[in-house]
Structure formats: C-alpha cells, structure tokens
Amino acid sequence: MASSSSSSKTGLKKMLTLKSSDGDEFELEESIVIQCQTIKHMVEDGFSLIPLQNVDTKTLTKIIEYMKKHAEKTESNKEEIKNFNKEFVKGSFDDQFELVSAANYLHINGLMDLLCQSIADRINNKSVRAVREIFNISNDYTPDEEEKVRDEHKWAHEGGEFDESLD
C-alpha cells in the first residue's frame, strides 16, 4: 500500500477511492480529495483506498459534490462558487448537522465554516423552544433555574419577536 504514493510521476492523474460507511466506493482525483485534511494525511501515509466509517453514502455524495466544485475555484468564478454555496446549505437541519459532523471529522475547514455560518444564520432569531426542538435537546433546567438564567440577561429576551418555526 505504501508504494502507491510515488506512482503519480507517470503522468496519469492519481486516483483515490473513498469508501462510505454503507460500503459504497467513490473514485476521485487526488487533487480534489486533498482539500480534506484528514484524507490528505492518509494519502501522505500511502493509502489509496480510504474507508470513512463515520460518513454514510448520502453525506459523502454531498461532500464530494462540494469538493469537486471547490477544486474548480479560480479568480474568475467566485460568483459561481458563491451561488453554489448558497444552494448547498439549503437542506434540512438534520442534513446540515450530518454534514457538519462529517466536515468536522474530515477537517474540511471551508465547508465547516460555511455550514456553521448557515446554521447560525438560521437559528439566530429562533425562540429557545424552537432551538431545543431543532437540536433535539431536552430542557434540563428546573423552572426556577431557567427563570434565573433568563433574569441575568433580560435585555436579550425583551422586545424581540422570536421565530417559533422549526425549518
């Protein structure tokens, strides 16, 4: 396995295979895949078949789509990339969370920033109740404790209209 890292000198584009947790394999050029720090390190260690036990096929397909597009990035297609990013973050919260976890695991910094920012933009104006639903968090405060925390920052709770929707 260790011998494959020097084969790129033959002129052929070096290909790598990513294997999802569902067992599906995706063959990609090394130049695309090395945007991902975790894989880059594995490639440097001589791997050419990369098993990703934490990433399912659906999520991996999206991530590959992102990496392919961003590998094309030049000075002249900034607008195109921007539009791509906008479309990319349109999925449901659950899809976004899957992607954030994968982006974090794979160390794709650009994708991580994009997703965190888009999730934050979507929840900035949400009510506490909606946020709990969206993140599937159960309220572990007693009513008294919650009241106390809210009292500390009354100004943050005043006057605003909060969005109760879950999308």
Binding site: A120, I137, E146, A156
Partner: peptide, 24 residues
C-alpha cells in the same frame, strides 16, 4: 462536540444570551 461550539461561536450575542436558557 466541537461542531456545536463552532456553530454557537457564529451566533450573534443577542442570540447567545437568549440560548443560555436552552439547556445547562
């Protein structure tokens, strides 16, 4: 997780203050 911290760090201050009461 790291992910949650990353998401929270991009929120506006007003939202953060409010979301202290989401959970401990």
């Amino acid at each position: 997780g790291d992910e949650m911290t990353n998401i929270l760090s991009t929120l506006l201050v007003e939202a953060l203050m409010q979301f202290r009461s989401v959970c401990k």
